[in-house]
Design a protein around this nucleic acid. Sequence first.
DNA 1: GTCTATATGCTGATAGAC
DNA 2: GTCTATCAGCATATAGAC
Lengths: 198, 198
Amino acid sequence: MTLKSKNRQKEILAKSARLFRKKGYAATSVRDIADAVGMKSASLYNHIKSKEDILQSLLLPIAKIYVTSIDEVNKSNLPAIEKLEQIIRDQINITIENPDAVSLVPDQWVFLKNDESDDNYAYDEYIDLRNYYEKLFIDIFQQAIAEGSLKSVHIEIACFSILSTLRRLYSWYARHRTIDKAILEKELIMNLLGGLRK
Amino acid sequence: MTLKSKNRQKEILAKSARLFRKKGYAATSVRDIADAVGMKSASLYNHIKSKEDILQSLLLPIAKIYVTSIDEVNKSNLPAIEKLEQIIRDQINITIENPDAVSLVPDQWVFLKNDESDDNYAYDEYIDLRNYYEKLFIDIFQQAIAEGSLKSVHIEIACFSILSTLRRLYSWYARHRTIDKAILEKELIMNLLGGLRK
DNA sequence: GTCTATATGCTGATAGAC
DNA sequence: GTCTATCAGCATATAGAC
């Protein structure tokens, strides 16, 4: 694979992500993507296998970035409460660096599912990654309670609350791109964890 | 209009909302809706004007419910901090009572937009309602800071954080329908406001 | 109010020339 | 690696019989 074709593929993925973000996967046609890249839709198929292939190539890498990130934090020797703070900072950074791909995470994964019993395991792989992340997040949260840093709150509500804000951050950030990252980190850590500290 | 046809329309709206929630507006076909209701797609058009008409009939009423609710809270003589607590309780109740319609609020409004300069103002009306709600929410939030109940935090980040969690509550609630509402209210108020109190 | 039949256009994807 | 031409299927919506 030449450097040029790699760049072309990257461009197709980037343009697709932006279109999927704006209208959703289902409402974005292969012709829309081809227009954005500047070629005919038939030519796209020299670079991609299918429309769903594009979605996989966006969702699986970003899910792996999340998992790698939380794994690394978890391996550290930090107290659990500081792990949670670092996870929030990491999610902010992932969002700032990949806003279009991140925007697909909350809802577009449903379109990875093809009809019955395809040989396509992208859906299952994505769900596994998401569940792994959430489980680890909850584990660390529980540990922070056990260590006495957090009140013994309703864990599932608290984790939902934190994660739903972080998953939507791409949307707020798009309208406030000039904000200082350190301020964003400080404010979100206060918003999301402040009410739960002992 | 007979009682029967009114019920039929309600059923079409309810079934549509559930389908739109599951796959999104764009990926749901008129045939899908007709199947769910138990008729042919052509027959649906005796009850609805168009597919987009259904979306309007779901989104505009729920947006008006939100606005009516926050207006009423705002008219009260409560301190601003208690207004915020009541707004959170109201949003929880609206979500519990209309989970399918509420699920469309974050992302599906984009499909109210037809091509250029249609005589369709549903999109503008929806955006106006949403902006009105957000502006009022921010006003009350600022007032709570002015009254000394909340720290002088970054207002836009804090309001985004609170609202993004409440807008996604339908999703968490679907998996935890047995939770006691009073607990949900207490925990969410703590999660969302706790870190900001003076 | 429901149906069958149909109109018209767009969908994802492929074949084959250059 | 891009194009034109094309396919089969599905989209929303309408016409008109019953």
